[in-house]
Amino acid sequence: MAKAHVYKRDHVNTDEIIPARYLNTDDTAELAKHCMEDLDGGFVKKCRPGDIIVCGDDFGCGSSREHAVWSIQGAKVGAVIAHSFARIFYRNCINCGFYPIEMPDAVNKINDGDELEIDYKNGTINNKTQKKTLKFNALPDFALAIVHDGGLLEHIKNQK
């Protein structure tokens, strides 16, 4: 069961997602231990595999560190839903085969603890707790192709 962890915040930056003091390694398991640490020190403990982070505007702003995406993937977060994403973070997600879900007003339509089910094909989220279906902005086709291949490098290899 994927549970929503809602942070009613805009501009959650990469320093909050993975603080620079941990950037002396790129080991995913190590990075995962500190996922979201400077925003919510208890996040890693309460996050179950598949759980979903929900935020406002401009998620992932700041540094270009892909470590932010790796720490989220490493912590087995199922998805991030945000009103909008910062550019480099958005690109990094796609390149890592992690679908960034853009949905305006998400923090007002999803409550902390709601159970969610994401239908990537149809671009919808089933909010099981509120018994509502929500629509999100689908990725453009070229980005979708990269995500489907599991990331940019796999995509490049597949094209050869």
Binding site: S64, R65, E66, V69, I88, R91, N92, L153
Partner: peptide, 10 residues
């Protein structure tokens, strides 16, 4: 412009 590690690798 700035990019992440996967873009850099590519």
């Amino acid at each position: 412009t700035g990019i992440g590690s996967t873009d850099l690798a590519a």
